[in-house]
Design a binder for these strands. Structure first.
Lengths: 204, 204
DNA sequence: CGCCTAAGTGGAATCCGATTCCGTTTACTC
DNA sequence: GAGTAAACGGAATCGGATTCCACTTAGGCG
């Protein structure tokens, strides 16, 4: 609530009541349709879902990105609101834990949505992984060679390196478990904070 | 449809010489145009750049994704080839270093391309950052509260947490420096491998 | 070496969805 | 309760992706 930007909160020219209602309906409708068909669902479908004409949609959201942005804003606001509620109803640590969990779900949702965008088709699905598979042998040779030459230790495999460097390259199909594990780890680290002082920080 | 891994390597039905030439031209042209206009450049432009008709493009690459995939494959192959060359011409460690550098450039290129895809418009540009800015206050409250309650140490700021968790959310405008720094770090770690044995591994 | 055939081609024709336009409806003002 | 301008819906328009088909041309064969 109360954002200084526009569309939803405080338009310079006060929106008419029905217009405001429609904007609301559009955001809600868009969320539904985007979730179902991905971000480049047919504009018409969104309008239909919201129960308004396409012109109305275009009036309030001239570009598709505007609509997506609005949906995102809306969801973020919910997320923020949740933080307040959790803070009021739980111990600080619990609230933090719960919220991160929620935040995690949120991010994952948005990623799934963004991923759908890339490939209208499923062709790209395992692309990142596929590329890594192809590169791995090549890099592995280099790594093996370096190792034989005594220039490196045995701390990392070629795949480790590729993963580490490529990193973002993966559109990530089912990172869910991984992400949750990381969060758990993070929280564990947080808890240990006051206990152990050494070996906590490695690099900025 | 055709076959699964075809188009460039070993089509069951031997391509006619000129067809093969055209495929080559299309991949090259697509690379150029995609680099200039992003992955959803006009199909016609790609055909024009390649000096062929649109039908020819469609014959060889029924879906846009097929074309993108082909370009990527092509680039990956180049990357692999580079690995061999470097391995032959340098000491193992140097080759590894140089190759990672090249690989880094490759990944970054592809990311820029993928990023362009998301937002035809620049609206999404700083979206990730923007969202983080909005969430930061909310999370910060939780963190502060937890800290005051003595449940956590002071090892991480709210922003750190958000960054760590959101991670992929950022389409990343100019990660270049960051990425290079990480690679340097990685190589340093590799070199130290045989020297220090402790504290190398933290988590898989 | 020239012919025959089917693969391959270019550009015109078609199709589909995004975007715009305009006459009508509806919420606020006085 | 009438006047007015904002807001609406759906039809019309526009642009680019995809398909179609009459025409070329590579390359095998007599």
């Amino acid at each position: 609530m109360t954002n200084r930007t526009d569309v939803e909160s405080e338009p310079r020219t006060p929106l008419r009541a029905d217009a405001r209602r429609n904007v609301e309906a559009l955001i809600e409708g868009a969320r539904t349709v985007f979730a179902r068909d991905g971000v480049d669902a047919h504009v018409k479908d969104v309008a239909l879902q919201a129960g308004v004409g396409v012109a109305t949609l275009y009036r309030h959201f001239p570009k598709r990105a505007d609509l997506v942005l609005a949906v995102l804003r809306h969801d973020v606001d919910e997320c923020v609101e949740t933080a307040r509620e959790l803070a009021a109803a739980h111990t600080p640590m619990d609230a933090l834990t719960l919220w991160l969990d929620r935040y995690c779900a949120f991010v994952l949702t948005k990623q799934g949505l963004a991923a759908a965008l890339h490939s209208g088709e499923a062709t790209f699905a395992g692309l990142g992984a596929q590329l890594l598979e192809r590169l791995e042998p090549a890099l592995d040779e280099l790594v093996q060679a370096a190792r034989v030459a005594g220039a490196t230790g045995e701390g990392a495999s070629a795949m480790d390196l590729l993963r580490a460097v490529a990193h973002l390259c993966t559109p990530g199909p089912s990172h869910i478990d991984y992400t949750r594990r990381m969060i758990t780890l993070l929280l564990a680290g947080l808890r240990q904070g006051p206990t152990t002082e050494r070996a906590t920080r490695t690099a900025p």
